[in-house]
Simulated assay, not measured.
Amino acid sequence: MQHEEKSVEILLVEDNPADVHLLQEAFQESRIANHLSVVKDGELAMDFLYHRGEYAAVPRPDLVLLDIGLPKKSGLEVLAEIKDDPGLRRIPVIMLTTSKAEADILMSYDLHANSFITKPVHLHELFEVVRQIEEFWFEIVKLPPR
């Protein structure tokens, strides 16, 4: 189980302000200490991961939650770039999107996404998904060191 003194670093790449707000709320309710950073497009996600510009001092995330339909650079393009970089590829990437399209699911796994989750419509279901993500990725799975 994750120790409380070590906060889990999560990067949320999401352009929908309502979804960002709900996910922030869900992670605040968490029993696992976490720090959720949010960027709103694919280019900012890569700046964050490469510590460029305003993100020069940010910690490396333990997990990336990535939407597919992003401005500037799609979630699939971001995923491809992450998994093509030896310095980033070990970071687990969960596609968290409204898409249910088979093509998006197949492409995500072809690009080595660690999982694909369609965002639930109802708030209580979203909170449950976040709880299950946390339980699996931060209590069961052994993550690589930062």
Rank of each mutant, 00 (worst) to 15 (best):
residue 32 I to T: 08
residue 32 I to F: 08
residue 32 I to H: 05
residue 34 N to P: 04
residue 36 L to P: 02
residue 36 L to G: 08
residue 36 L to A: 10
residue 37 S to G: 07
residue 38 V to F: 00
residue 41 D to H: 12
residue 42 G to Q: 12
residue 42 G to H: 04
residue 42 G to Y: 03
residue 42 G to E: 04
residue 43 E to R: 13
residue 44 L to F: 07
residue 45 A to F: 01
residue 45 A to S: 05
residue 46 M to C: 09
residue 46 M to G: 01
residue 46 M to T: 03
residue 47 D to F: 00
residue 47 D to Y: 00
residue 48 F to I: 03
residue 48 F to Q: 00
residue 49 L to E: 03
residue 50 Y to D: 00
residue 51 H to Y: 05
residue 53 G to E: 10
residue 53 G to K: 06
residue 53 G to Q: 03
residue 56 A to F: 11
residue 56 A to H: 07
residue 58 V to T: 10
residue 59 P to A: 11
residue 59 P to M: 10
residue 59 P to K: 10
residue 60 R to W: 02
residue 60 R to I: 09
residue 66 L to R: 00
residue 67 D to F: 07
residue 67 D to L: 10
residue 68 I to A: 04
residue 68 I to D: 05
residue 68 I to G: 04
residue 69 G to N: 14
residue 70 L to C: 07
residue 70 L to K: 05
residue 71 P to Q: 09
residue 72 K to Q: 13
residue 73 K to Q: 13
residue 74 S to W: 08
residue 75 G to W: 07
residue 75 G to F: 02
residue 75 G to M: 11
residue 77 E to N: 06
residue 77 E to A: 15
residue 77 E to R: 08
residue 77 E to S: 13
residue 77 E to T: 05
residue 78 V to I: 01
residue 79 L to E: 02
residue 80 A to T: 09
residue 80 A to F: 12
residue 80 A to P: 00
residue 82 I to E: 07
residue 82 I to H: 06
residue 85 D to L: 13
residue 86 P to G: 05
residue 86 P to V: 11
residue 88 L to D: 07
residue 89 R to P: 00
residue 91 I to P: 09
residue 91 I to N: 10
residue 92 P to V: 13
residue 92 P to L: 14
residue 93 V to M: 13
residue 94 I to G: 05
residue 94 I to E: 06
residue 95 M to A: 08
residue 97 T to K: 07
residue 101 A to I: 04
residue 103 A to E: 14
residue 103 A to V: 13
residue 107 M to Q: 14
residue 108 S to D: 04
residue 110 D to R: 15
residue 110 D to N: 15
residue 110 D to V: 06
